[in-house]
Nucleic acid binder design. Structure first.
Lengths: 165, 165
DNA sequence: CGCAAGTATCTCGACGTCAAGACACTTCAC
DNA sequence: GTGAAGTGTCTTGACGTCGAGATACTTGCG
């Protein structure tokens, strides 16, 4: 089946036959698919009255394991946002009672963000919903294909994740 | 090589051994890679004094071929933004002299957006720069692997692109 | 010990996006 | 032709993000 990137690449080959546009076959698909996923997630989370950004923060804390707390700096690296954004997110989540700020006992510059009981429940529920939705999207592929795809993507993400950038 | 998603998945398996988190192996990588690509593109385009959103609009028009004009509605479907956003983008690009608005001769509700000569040159230059950067990112993979990856991604994007979403 | 450099977080203003609705024009059925 | 539904674009207000700088504390060197 043809997709929008096939059309996009064909158009470039017509308009700019002098250029090698093969990279777009992969990376434009990644960007566009991410865009579609963002939209789908927004809808899935709405059932749990959560925004995607709230999910990102809550699940980062949830994954940390008991006592479900991380510093704002650790949250930054997990969510790929800037520090100003994270401050704002923590403020809003705290106001909703899903997280709380505690002073870091070992560094008085620092703060720890801890998930509340309600925050934990909401994260768990939303995660289950998200996984259901993602399984439906991935039903296009066989188990083996999903494994291949994951491995190929890992090769591209690893440099970004390991060399700081 | 391990990436951030490997760590993320391992954390979920520890915290929620009851859930099947396999979908994250693919889709979390797509989202995170897209995020990294956004950042890299922003830097690449800065050399040409263009923002990513400007590039998106200008190249959509460029790909359309002479006379390089599309309606705002056609631009919406190509760029995956809302109509209010597109109006705003066209306003700003017009103010910079990179596009111009013309009345649509065949539908008086409509408008056509046309690339100016300078807009076309800027789009062409930025595209070449982007492709160089993307080639560097994709050097992690063999030509055959890139082909495989593109084909697998196409299977996931096609439903979004063909069934209206 | 004392000071400079480094680090963690927060503050602030500018900006881009979105969603919903308004408006103008077109199309289609009767 | 006329009215209703449909379509294409723009307007508006709220919101989230970013980047740069400020602040408070810590670390390491002399």
């Amino acid at each position: 089946m043809e997709d929008e990137v096939d059309r996009l690449v064909a158009a470039w080959r017509r308009e700019r036959p002098d250029l090698d546009v093969e990279p777009l076959e992969v990376l434009s698909r990644v960007s566009r698919l991410a865009r579609h996923l963002d939209r789908a997630r927004r809808i899935a989370f709405a059932e749990h009255a959560l925004e995607p950004w709230e999910f990102d923060v809550l699940t980062s804390l949830r994954r940390a394991g008991a006592p479900y707390q991380l510093s704002p700096g650790q949250l930054l690296t997990q969510t790929l946002v800037t520090s100003g954004t994270m401050t704002n997110r923590i403020d809003r989540l705290a106001k909703k009672g899903l997280v709380e700020r505690l002073p870091d006992p070992s560094d008085r510059r620092g703060v720890l963000v801890r998930l509340t009981g309600e925050g934990r429940d909401r994260a768990d529920q939303a995660l289950a919903g998200l996984l259901d939705q993602e399984r439906a999207i991935l039903a296009e592929l066989s188990r083996a294909q999903r494994g291949e795809l994951a491995a190929l993507l890992r090769q591209l993400t690893a440099p970004f994740d390991n060399i700081p950038g």
